[in-house]
Design a protein around this nucleic acid. Structure first.
Lengths: 350, 350
DNA sequence: TTGAAAGCGCTAACAT
DNA sequence: ATGTTAGCGCTTTCAA
């Protein structure tokens, strides 16, 4: 009976090769290009490897092959249903191709993002996913000079010269504005994310404003409030809007968390939603469907987005020129929106 | 005026050293042990490095130093508020020490977990975080033989010989059972996670059952339903329990998602919660506090847990023998629990 | 204090 | 088809 030798942590291709009377090159070939080794030798090599409990040494491998089979993802925060799904989709997709995910979060700080980009480059990621479009041009140059493929997600602007997979945030917000206007609202409010250092939040406010302007409606500054993406902050923002001499009859929120908070505040104040005030969200996280009343929102297929991003990166890493993907966000009308109370001017939805 | 030379992606310590009339060893020292280089030379070296736009080559560095400054985390899924926070805490903590996070998810499959453990070992992580306690002993041996520090989280069993940071799931479930019994419930039900391949879920059911048995109460099999952690599944499970000839007056759910789904089903069926039926959750994710009625649950400080896990790993990597941490889960009583309707035997809570 | 040089473990030319 | 060997870019003795 053969004694099972404890796998020595120091076992190297070379040592195993020597012990087995085979060259380390053959062992390496068996690992990387098995078809180039004759079946019998291959079998012997594999037995050798298995018996030694061989575990490849990634760093050595990367140094020699100039590949890490690792991809990076830099997101604002993991603690968000949206980004969690995005990361999940990416990780699952690259996993199928034998890649690992190096994850970093920035907490919405451009400085931290820059640092993480550099860190991931040092770690030798073969490609990386970024969120949003605005960042120091130097970073783009760095990525370019290092020849590292990347995609940006959660936004889309045909003018940007790099690979993207996302949507047009301004257009999306316009879509919400149009819907609200179409069902008769004329006094609107916005609870947005902090737009500084968040181009998605800024674009949404811009798109919303533009849509209103186009239809001859004003959006005075006090009707636009920026808040971090938390429920309590959203409640405070909604309370502020409701304290206005002429409160809005509909409020677009920067995402579903804000919408949920806004909704809670209304209910707390015994306002009926949507009869007395309409609220919209963004993202369509699960809670938007489950809470009562269900939140009208734009559906963001985050998991798929992560997968698409991964596919683009995988392709780029294999040398295929990347193709952009711009997705249409579907408007999910639920129970937080309705024509304004006194509206007799309500028209049919778009 | 000095022309800013484009940072060549091929710039290596050696080439920069040669160009500057300095040895690559000195450059390396400036990077890793600056105090060992005389200030003037150090300044010149740093200028050289900066001008070249030098970016260290991680693989080469790791190969030579046998360190990657990378830690791994393997969790069931990112798409869970609990694990998202756990990962967030870990990532932030290690980030402060210059480490990067290699993230993998298993979708609750032991096979995938084993694969990811091996993958992370290959990638050379300096340490890793795992969730739960039960896995193939070979994995523990592998980790041990490779000398890779690890912690397991989300569980605690003083009998296990490796570092842990978590809580006793059986005891936690007992705590819930005792609370429910104390306020007078006698016919109880459980909606648990799938306990196969999930020791946390299994331990909770076991702890709950044991607590009931101790007080002379039975828990017939049809009162225990296992379901994946999703809202619709939980609704189905609750519907099944409610169809029982004698439905339970209180249901312990395996986590807050299940509790939320169970709650929704009750509301849908026009049952009043907690008047007609009590429900408890586990984790205290934000939704548990925000939904109406608020869910009675056990608070799991996931973010802090991630930080603690990171600290242990960081310490272990620095050679400090790890210390376990077992935390007490606080019971958060909200609005989904109350004495059973017809109960005259209700006693004060524990 | 600084430089020279020997690896770290592997891959991929190149040689056989 | 297989073996030999030269690096990959860095850290770290070891000498100077």
């Amino acid at each position: 009976m053969k004694r099972k030798s404890a796998p020595l942590s120091g076992d190297t291709l070379k040592s195993i090769a020597a012990a087995g009377g085979i060259s380390s090159a053959t062992l390496s070939r068996v690992l990387n290009h098995p078809e180039k080794v004759r079946p019998d030798l291959r079998a012997r090599a594999m037995a050798l490897l298995a018996e030694a409990g061989y575990v490849p040494h990634g760093a050595a491998r990367s140094l020699a092959s100039r590949k890490t089979r690792t991809m990076g993802a830099i997101i604002p925060t993991v603690d968000s249903a949206l980004f969690a799904k995005l990361v999940d989709g990416m990780q699952q997709a690259i996993h199928e191709h034998g890649y690992q995910l190096l994850l970093a979060s920035t907490n919405y700080s451009p400085g931290r993002e820059a640092g993480e980009v550099r860190a991931l480059i040092e770690r030798g990621v073969d490609a990386m996913m970024l969120v949003g479009r605005s960042r120091d041009p130097e970073l783009y140059e760095l990525l370019h000079s290092k020849g590292i493929p990347f995609v940006t997600t959660c936004h889309y602007d045909a003018a940007d010269p790099w690979p993207m997979v996302g949507w047009d945030n301004a257009a999306a917000a316009q879509r919400i504005a149009d819907y609200l206007l179409d069902i008769g609202h004329r006094r609107l409010g916005v609870i947005a994310g902090i737009s500084k250092d968040n181009d998605r939040a800024a674009d949404r406010v811009a798109g919303f404003t533009r849509a209103l302007t186009r239809r001859g409606i004003e959006l005075p500054p006090q009707y636009v409030i920026e808040k971090p993406y938390t429920v309590p902050e959203a409640r405070r923002a909604m309370a502020t809007l409701l304290r206005l001499p002429e409160p809005p009859t509909a409020v677009m929120c920067g995402n579903d968390i804000l919408a949920y908070g806004a909704l809670q505040e209304c209910l707390w104040q015994n306002l009926r939603v949507p009869e007395q005030i309409s609220i919209t969200g963004f993202d369509n996280i699960e809670m938007a469907a489950h809470c009562r009343p269900g939140i009208t929102t734009l559906n963001v297929p985050a998991f798929e987005l992560g997968q698409r991003a991964a596919q683009i990166l995988l392709a780029a890493d294999a040398g295929t020129p990347p193709e952009n993907v711009c997705i249409e966000l579907e408007l999910i009308v639920r129970d937080t929106t309705a024509p304004p109370r006194s509206s007799t001017s309500a028209r049919l939805g778009s």
